[in-house]
Every structure is written in C-alpha cells, then in structure tokens.
Design a protein around this nucleic acid. Structure first.
Lengths: 338, 338
DNA sequence: TCACTCTGCGCAAACGATTGACCACATGTC
DNA sequence: GACATGTGGTCAATCGTTTGCGCAGAGTGA
C-alpha cells in the first residue's frame, strides 16, 4: 500500500506538504515546483488516500447509509441510482444497509452510525413497522432522514406527493366515466397508504362522488400477493367496482394476474391504474396504466437532505415534487361501459 | 463518541485491558472481577468499537464489496440477500458498489480496494463488457471473485450450472413433443449465454434432433426489450418455432408481452420456458414456466470464496450446484400440437 | 542595521484500537 | 536464599492522515 510517506520520500518533502498539496488545502504554501514534484510522485506511485486513516483523523467518513425494507422491485433500484448519483456529485458514497424484519432495522442503524461507518443515514421503514420501533432509532441523535414516512417531532424526512399521485390515478378513471372505483391500498399504519387514501378520496369528492364505502378500499399491502387478494375481495362484492386504483405497481401486477385467473377481463370488466411505474408495468398484459413517481429524484433529495444535516445541521422536511407525478396511459384502463 | 479510554477510565483499568477483554483475546489475562467491571462499564457506556480505528490498526475492514451491473430485477435482490447472510454469519459486511456502463466498473474496484474500504470484492461484469476491461481489474492483485464469468488465468470465480439450467428448460419442451425449439439467448460474448447455448444444444442433440439452424438462436440480450425483439425475429421465420427457451426471466417477460401484442397465443402457439425464476414470473400471463436458479446460494458461495481468499489465500473456481436448478412448471408451456 | 513580514516548508501531536514487551508481586522449587 | 514460573495487569509503539505551530531564509521599510 502506498502511503503519504512513500510519496513524500519520492518527492523529497515531508508528509504534511504532500497532504496539503493533494487535498488542495488553502494552507498549502508550496512553490509551484514542489507542487509539481508531489503531484508527479503521487501519480507515479498511484497513491490513494487510505480510507481508515482519513476517517480516523477527521472523524468523518463521507459515507451515508441507505436502509430500505425491500429491494425486490425496480423501484428501489431507481431510488438507489438517484441516491448514488447525488452522493457521487458531492463526493460521498452510499452504503446499502439491510433492514431486517425485526426491530425496523434499528440494529443496523446502531451499527452503522455507532461504529462510525457512516456519517448519516437515509432510512425507509417497512410498511408494517409500528411507530414505537422508529422512536428508538431516531433517538440516537444521529443525522437521519426518513424516506416516505414522517414521525412525530422528527424533522428530517423526504416524501413523495402521494396525495397527488393517487389523485392523478383516480381522476384518470373518473374522466373515463367510472363511478364505482375501488382503492387497493397498503397497510393501514403505513404513512404512504394514508396519503394515497387521502388523494383517492379527495378526487372522488371533487367529482361529486360520495365514497363508495369501506369495502371498496382494501388495505392489504404492497406485494403482488396482496394485489391478488385485493382483486378477489373486490370482485366478490355485490356490486364489484369497474375501476381500481392500486397503490403500488407490484400489487397491481399481482392484481392483474389474479384477474386473468379469475376471468375478470381488464380493461373491459375492470380498469386498473397503479401508483408507481417501472419496466415491469410495460410488460404486463394488458400493459399497465400507471402514475410515474420520481424515485430517482427522491433518492437524490434524501441524500441531499442528509448531507445538509451532516454538514450544516439543517433539518428539512421535504416533499419531492419535481418532476411531478405523471400519468402514463397504457392499456389497462378504458372508458366505463355505463 | 465512547472510546476504549472512556471504558477504561470507568472500570479503573488501562485501555489495553479493555481491548483484550472486549475482543476476547487469548492473551487477556485478567481476573474475573476485572473482566466483569470492564464488561459492565462497556455496557453502561454503550461502547461500540470505532470502525476507522480498528481498520487502521489492523489493516482490515471486514467489508467486502459487491459490484453488479444491474439491480433492476428481483434476481439481484436474492443474490444480495444470500451474500449478506453469509457475510453476517462470518462477521463481515457487504458494501454494494455500482458498476457503471463505462470501464466495467474498473474505477469502482480501484476505489474500493485502493482506498482500503473493502478487503475483497465480488464482481459481476456486465453482459457487454469486453474481456479486455476485465484484465485491468483483475490485475490489481486484490482478492476478487468473479460472478458468472470466468477469465483466462484468473482462478476465483463462482458460476451457476448454466448448462444444466438450459438443458432442463429444453428437455421440458422436448418432453412435450416440441421439435422446432428456439433459444432466445444473451449477447454472444457473455459467458453465461455461451453456457446456456451449450446446454440447449446438448439437450437437442441427446434427443436426436439436429439443431434447427442459426436463425433459431437469437443473441439479443437479457432485458425485457431484448425478449420482445427475440419474439418478433423468431415469429417472422418461415417456420416459426413452437417452443422457445428464454435465457433470462426478464427477457421472457418481455417476450410474453410482445407475444400478446403480436397475437401469438402462449402456450397454444408457442410454449415459453425461461432460465431464472422470480416473483415476477408468477405474475405474468400465462404464468411463466421457469428454471429456478440458486441465486441466494450463489451469493453465499461468492462471499465464502472471497473470504477464503482474503483469510487463507485460497483461490477457488466454484460451480454452485446446491440447490440444483429446478424446473417450475406453470402455464406458459404445453404439449406440442403435432 | 534592525525589526518586520512573507514564503516555503517541516515537526509533532492528535484520532481510536491493537499488541508485543515489560513489570510488580506472589508462589513454588532446589 | 536464589531462582524460575505464573498471575494480573500496564506501557508504548503503531497504523495513515490531518493540521496547528514553528522555523529558517528572503525580502521590505525605516
């Protein structure tokens, strides 16, 4: 391993001179000739600063942790990409942690922050995590930004405009003349599910429709299996809906598959619109009408927020509105037949 | 931050005593009473060893890097889970790097290893990376294990039994009486694509079928769009195949969607079997018959291999055969009508 | 010439954990 | 009594980087 000392020896100067030159420190008062010798020596020896040495000395790692509950879908990949792009531009790295089922990833947060492996964290809590578990994590006083959830008294969160996303999806069905519209939503305690419920109902209200009743809003979850369950429940109603807003694209994919299996024709018998878009939505049958949410921008915003928290102490509760949620019309939705 | 010194002060001993006790060092000769005091002090102060200090001193991080070209599908998630499970059991962490389009992630390997952020790496090179780029990475003499590709002279790779996987898929179609079977394969230079081609052709040969000709093997790639392209190409042949083996589940999903759009009925007109299974394959229409490959086991094996390389210097070229590839029959394949 | 200031660097002390060397004391052996 | 052995620890060096401080020598103004 090449150290500062090696470079210094080759350039015939002291380690401090090398350090100052290589990190462009303002206090680096060296002649142009010396600077050149140092740079050349570093280049020839392929010097790379040692991460541990630097982190130990400066008590900063320039790494931020990202903890998500699930990464089996393309949405997460987009989020991670945005986060990594933003991090790279600011000379940070992203360390992907794993939030296990138990304790909302509290252990991983403790490890990463407690052992000084990261300077701050972006945490997305799982759908089914009770708020109690969250408190313990946030109590650590470490720079933490929550993703898609807000917690009493914790300012430091980045959320989608889920209300608007759900509203867009609902309005699309309303424009197609649907009046009996269902919502296949996430779990009740999920923050995003609550927001999407609000957007859904407000769109209905604005259209002068009274809510179709509790039974038309399932709250099973965001997985494909949950979407399947939602379809069965909704189509077994005395008056099944003619349109359904699914709060997650993975659930919509399951719902679509279950519709085929149950003989429900989409979009003829049932129009389907999902919140979230991904490459999988283009490849269902029929191709899924979806509201594209800015996952990449959210990743960027989260990293930006946590870096701001680290470097300036500023706390932000940000709503990611740019680019705005956008409806992508495909073939799973059509005009109501009545 | 709580340091060893803080714990030592509270327990009334020296830092070295604390260090030895907390790390269960064999040279820790302390009385039972002292050991207790130290443990209690550490517990009360919530001591956590500082990562940087430890890494600097020991020149080891107990972190291994995982670099993959693409993480938009569920397969990758399974791989990562396996890797993380194995790492955790051996008291390591996994750091997910990003292999950009350019230079096969050579830059990220250089950074992670060069700056001492990781002790070793698991690298899956992208499908379209020419072998030349690989050489540069492997030349760094760092502990690197390749995933699903082998490189001349580099022993340190973990691969699937792709030959067997493709063979299983092909034999399934053969048992159904298909004789005109196509292969929608990955790019020519891809190692896995070559292996899957071998398995495909050997199954045909064992069944006494002569290969149906070059045109029946497309080599477009592993994405959904590539699968769509493969379907169009194959169904435009003078004598379209009645069955197709798709070398990747994402491509199979695209192929299925394109079949619907083109009016090709699956499985009536065309039976489809894919290599790789994932939750998305259960939710296509018709549900996709697939060969389940042991992604989780591969993640574990890769981490095991790189740790072995780090700790004992042992190099391995391993074929992940347990659990063996397994055919999961769903509804996208059926008996040939002739 | 003296007292400054400025330039161009080097010295050395941290940061936190690990570990070989060493020390004081007690006990056992010849 | 001299010596070895064992017990229960402490001391101090080390890893690589950063940074406050100091120190020559050159230049400047009075």
């Amino acid at each position: 391993m090449v150290t500062l000392g090696d470079v210094a020896a080759r350039a015939g100067v002291s380690v401090s001179a090398v350090s100052r030159v290589l990190s462009n420190h303002p206090s680096a008062r060296v002649s142009e000739a010396t600077r050149c010798r140092i740079l050349q020596a570093a280049c020839e020896l392929r010097y790379r600063p040692n991460f541990a040495g630097r982190a130990l000395r400066s008590a900063r790692t320039r790494v931020i942790g990202l903890v998500v509950p699930d990464l089996t879908d393309a949405l997460f990949a987009e989020l991670l990409h945005g986060a990594q792009d933003e991090a790279r531009e600011r000379d940070y790295m992203v360390l992907l942690g794993r939030s296990d089922n138990l304790s909302a990833g509290g252990e991983v947060v403790g490890r990463l922050v407690g052992e000084g492996r990261v300077d701050g964290m972006v945490v997305q809590v799982g759908d089914g995590v009770p708020p109690a578990g969250l408190g313990a994590i946030l109590a650590s006083a470490a720079p933490i930004v929550l993703l898609n959830s807000v917690y009493e008294g914790h300012v430091g969160s980045v959320v989608f405009d889920d209300v608007e996303g759900a509203r867009l999806a609902t309005e699309h069905l309303l424009r197609f003349g649907h009046t009996r519209i269902a919502l296949a939503n996430g779990l009740r305690r999920s923050y995003t599910a609550r927001q999407r419920g609000i957007g859904f109902r407000s769109a209905l209200a604005e259209a002068g429709l009274r809510p179709a009743g509790r039974a038309y809003e399932t709250r099973l979850g965001y997985t494909a299996a949950d979407g399947r369950g939602a379809l069965r429940r909704l189509m077994n109603l005395p008056e099944p809906p003619t349109g359904v807003v699914v709060a997650n694209v993975d659930a919509a994919i399951g719902l679509l598959a279950e519709a085929r299996a149950a003989g429900v024709r989409v979009p003829r018998d049932l129009s389907v619109v999902s919140v979230h878009d991904s490459w999988t939505a283009e490849n269902t049958w029929p191709p899924l009408t979806a509201v594209r949410m800015p996952f990449s921008a959210m990743g960027r915003a989260a990293v930006r927020a946590v870096i701001a928290r680290i470097e300036t102490g500023a706390m932000t509760a940000e709503l990611v509105g740019d680019p705005a949620p956008e409806l992508v019309v495909r073939e799973s939705s059509t005009r109501s037949r009545r």
